[in-house]
Every structure is written in C-alpha cells, then in structure tokens.
Nucleic acid binder design. Structure first.
Length: 595
RNA sequence: GGUUCCGUAGCUCAGUUGGAUAGAGCAACAGCCUUCUAAGCUGUGGGUCGAGCGUUCGAGCCGCUCCGGAAUCACCA
C-alpha cells in the first residue's frame, strides 16, 4: 500500500512541480488517531520542490491524488501534514485478500534464506535451572520460531557445560555425604538432587575456610588450602586422566541432571536439534590455538601459557591456554565455533547468552577474525539483560534464586485457582482442565518475560506475574477463546464459517481500525526477525487483542441482522484469531480453545 | 580508570528509519453483565521523556558533556 502511494506521490510531484524525488524524501506514516485520515504524507521534505508553503503543497498533492487514484477518497492538510483518506472499498478489498491467505506467516518469508544456528540454554550440570535460564530458553526458542517462520534454515543447539571444577564439587559432596542417595531413593528430581550436593559442598567448604582463617591463615590462602578444595582439585585431575571411578560417578550424576533438565525443557516447550557437550569440545580448541601460535598470531609467555594480544582491537591481552596446558572457556568456544562452521556452513551463529558476557563474545569474534576466519562476521551475540527481583539481584547465598520448576508450578497453580473461581470449565474432564491451566500458566509466564525488550534488564515481580489482567498472556488467550466461543455459537446456529462470503459491505471505523492492525502483522514479524526481538510480536499481539476486545464490546456479531455484515464480522474475527494464534505461536505460547 | 548497555507516570513496560497534543498495564477513584465468555469494556487523575548544550523546519529517538544505575575488564565458566 505504502509503496503504491509512494509511486503516486512521486508521479504527483513530477507532474505538478516537474521534479524527480528520491524515495526517502517521501515519508508516509499512519495517521494519528486524533486526526481524520488513514495515511499521512509528511510534506516538509517536499518544500524544496514546491517552493511553496507546506499547506499549499499538501493541498496540491492531495488534490492530484484524489483525482487520479481511486483508493484515495479524500484528504485534509494540517500544518505540514497531508492526511489521506482511503476509500472504504479499498479496505474491504484488501481485507478479502488477507482473509484468503492460507498462512499469515507465509507472507513474511525472506527472499534469501540463510542457515542460522541458534545456541541457547547452555546450562551447568551442577545446579537446576532458574529464572535467568527461563528468559534465555524462551528467547532462544522464540527466535528459532521467528527466524524459521521467515524461511531461514535454523538449527537449535545447546552447549552443556558438563565439566570443570564446579561439577566436581557436587560429585565430591555426594561421595562424602550422599550415602548412595539417588533420584529414585529420594524422590527428588535429578537436577535438584545434584544441586543439593553442590550447596552442601559450599556450606562445608565455607566452614573449613572460616576455621583456617580463625587459626590465623590469610583468606585467599585458606580458600586454596581447605581440605575440600584440595580433594576437589584432585578429583578434577583424576577426571581429566580418565580415572574409571570418577568418570563413572560423573556419568551417573550427569545422567540424573539430564533427566531433570529434560523434564523442565519439556514443560517450557523448548527443544534442540543438536546438543554439544563441553567435555567433547574442550580439546578441539587447543589445536586451533596451537596452530595460531605457529602462525605467530598468538604468543607464548615465559611460564609457557599462551596469549593473544588484542590491544590493536581495543581489547586486552587474553589467555588461551594455561601454563599447565589446559583449556579455558575461550579455548573451547573457539573450537566449538570452528566445528560448527565445518559441520553446518552457517551464515549466522546466534549465541543467546546474557549481557554479562558481552566482552567474551567481542573477544571471540576478534580472535576468529584475526585467525582468518571470514565467517566470524556471522557470529552474533544475542545479548539479553538480567532478570532481577524487586529487592535486587538473585543471590544464591541469600536464597533468592527463583527456581524454574517452582515458578512453573506456581504459575499453573495460580491459573488453576483463578479458573476455578470463575468456574467456566465445569463441563470439562479433570484432564482437559489441567491442560488448560497449564496453557494459561505457561502463557502468563512466557508472555511476561517475552514482552520486555531483550536487551534490557527486567524486574520479575512475583505478585505482578500472577495477575492475569491487562497486558498479559492470559488477556490475549482470553481474546482468542472469546472468538472461538463466537464460532461455536455460530456453528450451533448452522453457520459454517469456512464457507461464508461477503461482497460489498460498508466497514465501520472500528472495523477498519482492526483491518489496519491485521495488516501490520507481517511487517511486525519481519521487524522482529531483523532486530531479533520477540518483544515486538508480543506487544503487537497485545495491541491487536485490545483492539478486538473493543470491537467485540461495541458490536454484535451473530446478532447482526444484515447477513453480509454478519459474515464480514465473522471473517474479521476469524482472521484476528488466526493472526493472534500465529503471533503467539512465534513466541512459543500455546492457546487454549476455552478458558 | 577503559569498554558495553540502561535511565520515559508511584510501580512494570511500549514508543518502527527523527514528525503532529509522548502511550498501555498495574495501583487509586467512578461507571457498564436479561444480549456472542466481565481474565472484558468506558471514563477520571497521574510526565520539565535523568540534566544541560548542539544539529534540524521538527528531537524521547541523532551528536557532545555531565549525573545515576547495571555488567565486564580472571591461569572461573
């Protein structure tokens, strides 16, 4: 529509003022609601051609368009703004076309699809997932849906941090204090059980340090000298040398954790195409580093540790291999990136990782480019903000970590309470009801997190998160179920909404407002894909729902006597429900049929 | 100290490449269920867009300087 208008305006300027205008000088936007009109041309940039006042210029272009472009039914000029009124017939025709589309996401397909890897989740195997992981998983998964919806080939990956000293901590504590406890024997979810021993380790470790400090030892020294830490380091060495007992313990405990994670992932509705384990990839990076050393891209220190000098890039010196030859985090990420490029030939590799690692990814990219990998330009750090609580950051020491499983459960419990109080589902079986509670609870949680601009830190307010009124997931779900309810009623009346038609109806202003919003869906999705921002879609769905609710409140659909208008409103409702459903699908949010 | 990000109503957040009188929700107050689901709708109050300067016909958005907050600058991951 805009493009068409643009052409006509160019034509107008050409004929009236005999000048050629560049595209970017023709600025068309939607008319603000308090003015009459549908689209607005900002005439200021065109004054250089008209050499006239803004009012006069707008007037002349407006007259030309009304005369030569049937879609433009009228216009008005206020200050430097030319408000164009689009004819009712045009909107109705446009809507007909929209209604005939099989898939609304289809319209967002890009012309040149890319191969894109999305890495998200990246858990440690010593603790259960928490609220921060939830934001990560939801963002990553939604990004996958949006990008693949736009036609890209997207591979979902997860890199599991399954080795290292912190993993040995929970292993050691279990060995010492566990008495053979298993998920089966305790009834605990595997990741929570392992997390329990991690906490137990930290607790006892702290006691040992305090004791040593009391005996006169310096604190830093005490941290190293504490028996538990010595034993842990010993265990890590055994693990690296492939000690059978340690390795067996590691495998067993990790398998508990994975079983636990799988459960949480399933509840969150996320999954992966390929899972990488750090224990497999950490060695790969070493070769790359050693090769780069040979090529003199890196240098060796006196203590034989290996470093990169990134000061020319405005960054610091970066360690890549320790003096004992073992790998660090960066070493492994170098290896993983190269591996992935070889395996998938990706155009882009998107890392969904918190903004605390901005520096890390800056370095990673700089290093790879320095090593001559041109594809390093395709590495994108999707950096998202921290989730904070109203009282500040989550701190494990103060017990303010919000556990993922607890939160999911709480949201569903609240959904159940609210639903039962409203009592609209009494004719459903318990099983069906539980499924609806689940969808509402998860919808509330997901929407609450995804509606916020990813790069901003966000506050998670527990009291607010369980409010299902206003700008929330359940509000949008509710709008959807209302439409579905209308359809059920229509069916009872013998109307088959798949086969109804309308021709030349006169659409009301509210209906045209809805059509305008529906029209914006595909550009919103494209913007979300280009800017990696699910929040745009979330806010769009909210806006659309609000608009529909107003329409629903003001007009009767099935009570309308004129069959043409009734059908028009039914189809308008149908397209709205489809687009809300598509939008929420892109966010990974399920929609109940009733609530 | 260097780098990156953030600062919009009491609170949580929107605000597309600079465009008209900066928008929602929550909280507060006042209304609307005999009619398709009231998890809804309508109205009222609430703002020097952190501050200042600059660019521009026009700045919440762009540039500079401050102020405030977060993260990071590890032989942790």
């Amino acid at each position: 529509m805009e493009i068409n208008l643009k052409e006509k305006i160019k034509e107008a300027v050409k004929i009236i003022y005999n000048s050629d205008v560049k595209d970017d000088l023709i600025q068309i936007q939607e008319t603000r609601k308090d003015f009459k009109g549908d689209f607005t041309l900002v005439v200021f940039p065109l004054l250089r051609f008209s050499k006239n006042t803004p009012e006069k210029t707008g007037e002349m272009i407006g007259q030309y368009l009304t005369k030569n472009f049937p879609a433009v039914s009228g216009f008005n000029v206020i200050k430097g703004f030319l408000n164009l009124e689009i004819s009712n017939a045009w909107w109705v025709e446009f809507f007909k076309k929209l209604a005939s589309e099989k898939s609304h996401i289809e319209a967002c397909k890009v012309s040149e699809p890319e191969t894109i890897l999305v890495e998200y989740s990246s858990p440690n195997t010593n603790k259960p997932l928490h609220l921060g992981h939830i934001r990560n998983n939801l963002l990553g998964y939604s990004l996958y849906r949006i990008l693949s919806g736009c036609g890209h080939r997207v591979i979902k990956t997860n890199i599991v941090n399954d080795r290292g000293i912190h993993i040995c901590k929970s292993m050691l504590a279990w060995q010492k204090f566990g008495n053979g406890e298993t998920p089966e024997s305790s009834g605990m979810k595997g990741d929570h059980l392992v997390g329990k021993y991690y906490v137990l380790f930290e607790k006892n470790y702290k006691i040992q340090i305090e004791k040593l400090v009391k005996e006169g030892m310096d604190e830093a020294e005490a941290k190293n000298a504490a028996l538990l830490m010595r034993e842990t380091r010993d265990m890590l060495l055994k693990w690296e040398s492939g000690d059978e007992e340690v390795f067996g313990l590691w495998k067993m405990m990790n398998s508990w954790v994975y079983a636990g994670f799988d459960e949480t992932y399933k509840k969150l509705g996320v999954d992966f195409d390929k899972i990488y384990y750090e224990s497999d990839t950490y060695k790969v990076g070493k070769d790359i580093v050693l090769t780069a050393l040979k090529d003199k891209i890196l240098y060796r220190n006196e203590d034989s540790s290996i470093w990169a000098d990134l000061t020319p890039d405005g960054l610091d010196q970066k360690l890549l291999l320790r003096s004992d030859g073992t790998a660090v985090y960066m070493t492994q990420d170098l290896g993983t990136a190269v591996n992935r490029q070889n395996e998938f030939k990706f155009d882009k590799n998107i890392y969904v990782v918190g903004n605390e690692q901005n520096y890390h990814f800056q370095v990673l990219k700089a290093l790879l480019k320095r090593m001559g990998y041109k594809w390093a330009d395709g590495l994108i750090h999707f950096s998202y903000g921290m989730v904070e609580l109203p009282e500040g950051r989550m701190k494990s020491r103060e017990g303010t970590i919000v556990d993922a499983d607890d939160l999911i459960k709480e949201m569903q419990t609240t959904a159940k309470e609210v639903s039962l109080e409203l009592g609209k589902l009494s004719d459903f079986s318990d099983e069906e009801q539980e499924d609806i509670f689940r969808k509402i609870g998860m919808g509330a949680l997901k929407y609450y997190i995804l509606k916020v601009d990813p790069k901003k830190n966000m506050t998670f307010n527990p009291a607010e998160s369980i409010d299902f009124n206003g700008n929330t997931g359940p509000f949008i779900q509710y709008t959807y179920t209302r439409i579905k309810s209308v359809f059920r009623k229509a069916e009872q009346m013998g109307i088959n909404i798949e086969h109804i038609l309308f021709s030349g109806v006169k659409a009301g202003t509210k209906e045209i407002e809805l059509i305008k919003l529906l029209r914006k869906f595909s550009e919103t999705v494209s913007a979300a894909a280009a800017g990696y921002s699910p929040a745009l879609i979330a806010n769009y769905c909210y806006e659309l729902s609000r608009e529909y609710n107003q329409f629903y409140h003001d007009f009767s659909i099935l009570g309308e006597d004129d069959e043409e208008i009734r059908n028009f409103r039914l189809i308008l409702s149908k397209v709205t429900s489809e687009i809300i459903h598509s939008g929420m699908w892109l966010l990974g949010i399920e929609m109940p049929e009733r609530m």
